[in-house]
Write a protein that binds this DNA or RNA. Structure first.
Length: 322
DNA sequence: GCGACAG
DNA sequence: ATCTTGTCGC
């Protein structure tokens, strides 16, 4: 049975989410912190990761969260983790992270425990970083919670802080010459929030790159270009392709849309995961977390019975804060 | 009623 | 995000 979508969260919840974004935003590092980021050839960089969440057609709750790790500069997949999850929050522009990030943090945490040697040195995230309503998009959110360098890559311009996809903007896009060319996206305050990047020659639509965490915008744009075999950076593209395939296979084999979100450990198969080791992440400490769950459930008006309504169950906040 | 709206 | 196979073009 395809579960129903959750409506828009009450203002009280959005208010708390804003508070959490403001709190975590103070922890964002928008400069290069690793040696390879400053190297002209990125020497020292060996693993780049990508994350994505794909959805099941008529079901706004079931989704597949994926994390892939590719070798650099070859860009060959060396690790893949796809898992079915039950989304808790609805999509609200400006709060994408509250819908997707918990599952991505879990995936990173599991990799950290089971195959630490495959931990990516940077993560490409489908969505914006500081190019956001409050300067704290999903790429920043995931970066702070995992302590990994993150790059925000959006396929469409988020029109915030004065940025507009108007005639002038389109003209700037038209003037981009070859792959790697870019132009700054300046917010109303005069700050450069991100860059529009022509990811490769013959690409009409640019990518909107912004800082997520622990990396400068310049390095982020340069590396993004270096990871594009096609318009979408290979790490994110592979995460997207594989999560969609996973859904197709799951639906095909099971026949009916009866998915078993986040349970059958047997159904997930990290490509390069040895045997041994038990399950259960045994999540570590949680310093900064908040009331996301409690508030959300408390203020949710309808859905009295533990019925097929949805919502319910939020993941334990896995923070990588030592 | 009209425009926005990351995924 | 998702609905969708083949088809035309470089």
């Amino acid at each position: 049975m395809a579960r129903k979508a959750a409506g828009r969260p009450p203002e009280e919840t959005l208010s708390l989410w804003k508070r959490e974004q403001a709190l975590l935003k103070t922890l964002v590092v928008d400069r290069d912190t690793e040696a390879w980021q400053r190297d002209p050839a990125f020497s020292g960089l060996q693993r780049v990761g990508g994350v994505d969440v794909s959805f099941v057609k008529g079901d706004s709750v079931s989704a597949c969260a994926s994390l892939v790790v590719l070798s650099y500069p070859e860009l060959e997949v060396m690790y893949e983790d796809c898992r079915m999850v039950s989304l808790t929050a609805p999509y609200v522009s400006g709060f994408l992270a509250f819908r997707e990030v918990p599952f991505l943090v879990d995936a990173v945490q599991q990799l950290r425990e089971k195959e630490p040697r495959l931990m990516p040195q940077v993560l490409f995230v489908d969505g914006n970083g500081v190019l956001h309503h409050r300067g704290f998009g999903v790429a920043c959110h995931l970066g702070v919670l995992t302590d990994l360098p993150c790059i925000g890559v959006a396929k469409k311009l988020l029109q915030v802080d004065g940025l507009e996809n108007n005639a002038l903007h389109k003209e700037k896009i038209r003037l981009l010459q070859g792959g790697g060319d870019s132009f700054p996206l300046m917010g109303g305050s005069g700050t450069v929030l991100g860059m529009a990047l022509k990811s490769h020659d013959h690409s009409t639509k640019p990518l909107y790159v912004s800082v997520g965490h622990k990396m400068s915008l310049e390095a982020a744009v340069r590396l993004t270009h270096g990871c594009c075999k096609f318009r979408i950076p290979e790490p994110v593209r592979q995460a997207d392709i594989r999560s969609r395939d996973y859904i197709r296979r799951t639906l095909g084999v099971q026949g009916a849309p009866a998915l078993r979100p986040e349970r059958s450990k047997k159904a997930q198969r990290p490509k390069a995961c040895p045997q041994g080791a038990s399950e259960e992440p045994a999540v570590s400490c949680c310093v900064l977390n908040c009331s996301v769950k409690s508030t959300w459930q408390r203020t949710e008006p309808t859905c009295p019975s533990p019925c097929e309504g949805a919502i319910l169950e939020v993941h334990p906040p896995a923070l990588a804060v030592i």
